[in-house]
């Protein structure tokens, strides 16, 4: 999925396009209405709350799908440097 770096050093993965989906929340005419209501909230409000879910999904998917991308090791990065929250699995 991930292409090797070119001369410009830019790597592209088509999964990155998913990151554009949340921009739908900027198109106000889609949701600037009262009905249907949910829990007494006008559509305008609960639609945007619901928009948080795709926001989390697309960044998570792109994170998982581009995880294997090759990286350059950091200079002078010594192994065994104390890390602050070891509890988090890689």
């Amino acid at each position: 999925m991930t292409h090797a770096p070119g001369r410009s050093g830019i790597r592209w993965s088509n999964w990155n396009l998913l990151l554009l989906i949340p921009l739908v929340l900027l198109v106000t005419p889609i949701f600037n209405r009262t009905d249907p209501r949910l829990f007494g909230m006008p559509f305008f409000y609960w639609f945007q709350f619901a928009g948080v879910v795709p926001g989390v999904l697309v960044t998570s998917i792109v994170y998982l799908k581009t995880r294997g991308a090759p990286t350059t090791p950091a200079p002078g990065d010594e192994p065994g440097v104390d890390t602050l929250d070891e509890g988090v699995a890689r």
């Binding site: 770096p5 410009s8 050093g9 991308a69 350059t72 990065d77 192994p79 104390d82 890390t83 070891e86």
Partner: peptide
């Protein structure tokens, strides 16, 4: 800077000390 600098990451071995 050179193109490779934009992809630098922590050395994987540097992370879970206990796992090594």
């Amino acid at each position: 800077t050179n193109p490779a600098d934009y992809h630098v990451d922590e050395t994987p071995a540097a992370t879970p000390v206990a796992a090594r």
